[in-house]
């Protein structure tokens, strides 16, 4: 199994911008979903995706500086995301009970 690959293969490393650009791509996709989609739940999920992308950056820099602080920060982000999801989904349930729709376009009673 080992001899299938040359020994240099196991020494290949990942450049730091690789992780950061991946994070940027995920964040951009999150923003795009947030802007273009019309379902409240999908929009909410886009926020979670953006939070995940930011977490990846935190963990990458935690690795780079050899300190655990970045990971602690991403842990807090996760906890806050959990609280946010609980409250947000409860709000969505309330809104659905009142208006029986999940389309963002229909939530415009404050306009005009």
């Amino acid at each position: 199994m080992y001899s299938l690959f040359p020994p240099e293969f196991f020494k290949l490393t990942i450049p730091l911008p690789g992780y950061l650009i991946l994070s940027a791509i995920l964040f951009t996709i999150g923003v795009a979903t947030f802007l273009f989609r019309r379902n409240v739940i999908t929009v909410f999920m886009a926020i979670e995706l953006m939070l995940n992308a930011v977490n990846l950056t935190f963990v990458t820099f935690s690795n780079h500086f050899g300190k655990v602080d970045g990971q602690i920060f991403s842990f807090f982000v996760m906890v806050v995301a959990a609280a946010e999801a609980a409250v947000g989904l409860a709000i969505i349930l309330m809104v659905f009970r009142n208006r029986s729709t999940l389309q963002i376009d229909d939530f415009d009673t404050l306009k005009n």
């Binding site: 490393t13 990942i14 450049p15 730091l16 911008p17 690789g18 992780y19 950061l20 650009i21 940027a24 791509i25 964040f27 951009t28 923003v31 990458t60 935690s62 690795n63 780079h64 050899g66 300190k67 655990v68 990971q71």
Partner: peptide
């Protein structure tokens, strides 16, 4: 946005040392 972000990231961090699995064990 993505292009600018990538450009900035590459300029700022490409000289930094690459990530190696097993080099950081404090997690």
């Amino acid at each position: 946005l993505l292009a600018v972000a990538s450009w900035v990231i590459t300029n700022a961090t490409s000289a930094m040392k690459p990530v190696k699995f097993g080099a950081f064990t404090g997690g």
